[in-house]
Every structure is written in structure tokens, then in C-alpha cells.
Design a protein around this nucleic acid. Structure first.
Length: 338
DNA sequence: AAGCAGCGCAACCGCGGTTTT
DNA sequence: CAAAACCGCGGTTGCGCTGCT
């Protein structure tokens, strides 16, 4: 744009951190006169700053309605959900969090939430599973397949060769399991002493592991026991993180669903403290409403469509993908925000 | 105790969109 | 209608703090 004079080009104007005295002058002036033209404000108020700097200081720090301090879990969840729908539209996201500034939310996202999603194995840009993790799973599955192929050629091998092959299979399975647990548990580890999926309160997605590994839980337990490794129970993976945001209208189809409807969503967004909202805690992104069964519930109770619908997802990963990452989910959030 | 690395956050920069002249 | 002025947004930077070696 022609003729624009950058703030930084205006000679003699102060930059950098604001002093308490400057803050006082700015607050006093705005309280008495309003900010009016930001460009004119510094001269009128007697500040040696550019208008832009004043505006920034006021909107991000000095404004009286700014909420300071840590983000609550509800706010955190809300930001994640809004970001999934809106992307890096920080001001739009901030519009749903009273007292929070876009800058604050942006910083919080970049320093905390992005990492959190990465640890959950999700791409912070797309909110979908990270491709590198999926490739890892794919590679390991190929490794498993390879060991099965090898077994077809070992009919005449002696017992030691068979043991070797069996060990290789077990190692491959353990590697696969370990990577799954890392993805799910968000605890990057480099060896097998990482997570105990078999604690008394474990919510291990049995069906998924069964299908991927071809093992049941007792076999897995034996597998782990046989490795002489310890699994401190306090390090159990949080498999809640495996659950997905629920595209209610997708799962329930018709609008007669008693699940959250879009016209109610603004209330939900504006009242994130409501315990019935899907934002109650991270990473539990699904409704707890009985009318809206979660992926886990469906898995535990058995998918009613499973026997009759041949196109129904055959693995938890597929279910996860279907429920969490359909484009309709993004559209749903966009709808409810707009 | 000193040096270093990582982190968090306030502030800056540059651009696009809107309003004013 | 075009140019200039202004505003607001998103990305980036740099500084201070903290914890580790």
C-alpha cells in the first residue's frame, strides 16, 4: 500500500516493553477520552509511542476486562475445538472466550496445545492423526506380515528356527504395541519399560489391539511378562485420548436426535463450564450423553450395525477415523460457530 | 557459581481489508 | 474512483525467567 508509514520507521518513537508510567498515562487517557483515533492518541496523551503500539498494549494488556491467569480445562478444550473448525483465526476464537485476547490464545496454542496434540498423535494443523504415526503402524504391520510369509517357508526348519521366527513376531508385535501406546498415551519412550496397559482400571481398547495384533489381553499380558519388563501402574496410558469429537448429526442421522443441536451450541460455547458440554475435559472430546454413545461405548456394547452392515468399520482405527475425522465434523463446528 | 538451553510471553512487523478524503 | 489513512489480524521475534549440567 502506498504512503503507509510503518510504525518502526517513525524516528524517535519508543519501542519495546512498556513502563508502568507509560501504562498509567495510556490508561488515564483512554478512561477519560476513549481511544478515538489510535494514530492521534499518543500525541494527545503525551506518549512517545506509535498508535499501533498503544492499541496493542491496550487491547492485549491494559483493557480492564481482560482475564489473566491460566487457561481452564474448559477453555483449553474450547480452543482446541474452535481451532479444529476455524484454523488460526485467533480473533474469531478469542470471540468465544470472554476476557481472553487473540494474542494470548495464539501464544497458548503455540506453546502448549500444539505440543499436546502432537503428543496425542494428532496433527495440530489438521487435527487428524499424524501421517508419520500411521506410516509407522503400516510399516510394523508389514513387518508382521513379513514374519508370516517367512513362516510359510519354514515347514522344514528345525525347532530353533521356529523359535527364532516366533521371537521376531513377538518383537514386531511388541514394537507395534509400544508405538500404539505412545500414540495413545502421549508419553514418548524409547524402550519397553513404558506403560502398563493391564492395570486394574485399564481401559485398553481391546478390540483394536486384538485386531491389529491378533492377541487377546491375557496373551498380551503373558507377552509382557515374558519380557521381564516392569510397567508402573501410575504410567497407564490415557486411552480417553483415543476418543473422538462426535459428529452428532452424523452418528444419529436425523434431526430428531436428542444430542446437542446446532442452535444450542452457542450456549454451550458461551458456557463452557457446563458439565454436560463436550468440552469438559481434554482429551475427552465426546459427549457423555447416553443418547450419543461414544466410540468406546459402542465398542464395549457391540456395534449394532456390525453384523448387518458389511461397510461398517472393522477396526477401532477405522471407527475412529469415521467418527472423528469426517469432514462433516469440521462443517459441524463451523456451523455452530457461525 | 557459571554457562547453557528451553520455555513463555509481550511486543513488533508486515500485510490485507475497510474507511475516509 | 483512486489514493491515503487507518485498523486489525496472524506470524514472528527477542527478552527474561527457570531449570539443568
Amino acid at each position: 500500500m502506498m504512503g503507509r508509514i510503518a510504525c518502526s520507521d517513525e524516528s524517535g518513537l519508543k519501542k519495546g516493553p512498556w513502563t508502568p508510567e507509560e501504562d498509567r498515562i495510556l490508561v488515564d487517557y483512554i478512561q477519560k477520552n476513549g481511544h478515538g483515533s489510535w494514530r492521534a492518541l499518543p500525541k494527545l496523551a503525551g506518549l512517545n509511542r506509535c498508535g499501533k503500539s498503544c492499541r496493542l498494549r491496550w487491547t492485549n494488556y491494559l483493557r480492564p476486562d481482560i482475564k489473566r491467569g491460566k487457561f481452564s480445562e474448559d477453555e483449553e478444550q474450547l480452543i482446541i475445538n474452535l481451532h479444529a473448525a476455524l484454523g488460526n483465526k485467533w480473533s474469531a476464537i478469542a470471540g468465544h472466550l470472554p476476557g481472553r485476547t487473540d494474542n494470548e490464545i495464539k501464544n497458548f496454542w503455540n506453546t502448549h496445545l500444539k505440543k499436546k496434540l502432537l503428543q496425542m498423535g494428532l496433527d495440530p494443523v489438521t487435527h487428524r492423526p499424524r501421517l508419520d504415526h500411521l506410516n509407522l503402524l503400516s510399516n510394523l504391520q508389514q513387518l508382521l506380515a513379513a514374519t508370516n510369509i517367512v513362516s510359510n517357508f519354514t515347514n522344514t526348519w528345525d525347532i530353533n528356527a521356529l523359535r527364532l521366527q516366533s521371537d521376531a513376531t513377538q518383537i514386531a508385535k511388541l514394537q507395534l504395541l509400544q508405538n500404539i501406546l505412545q500414540v495413545l498415551g502421549g508419553s514418548p519412550t524409547s524402550n519397553l519399560e513404558l506403560l502398563n496397559p493391564f492395570g486394574p482400571s485399564s481401559s485398553l481398547p481391546h478390540g483394536f489391539l486384538n485386531e491389529v495384533l491378533g492377541l487377546n489381553q491375557s496373551k498380551l499380558q503373558n507377552l509382557y511378562n515374558g519380557c521381564s519388563t516392569s510397567f508402573p501402574s501410575q504410567n497407564q496410558p490415557n486411552f480417553q485420548s483415543f476418543e473422538a469429537p462426535q459428529p452428532y448429526h452424523h452418528m444419529n442421522g436425523a434431526s430428531n436426535s436428542s444430542c446437542m443441536k446446532s442452535e444450542k451450541v452457542d450456549e454451550q460455547l458461551d458456557a463452557p463450564n457446563s458439565s454436560s458440554t463436550p468440552f469438559s475435559s481434554l482429551p475427552n472430546l465426546v459427549s457423555v450423553s447416553p443418547e450419543c454413545p461414544t466410540v468406546k461405548q459402542m465398542e464395549n456394547n457391540g456395534n449394532p450395525n456390525e453384523s448387518s452392515d458389511p461397510s461398517s468399520p472393522s477396526t477401532t482405527f477405522e471407527m475412529w477415523g469415521d467418527f472423528m475425522y469426517e469432514d462433516v465434523s469440521d462443517a459441524y463446528w463451523k456451523d455452530l460457530i457461525e
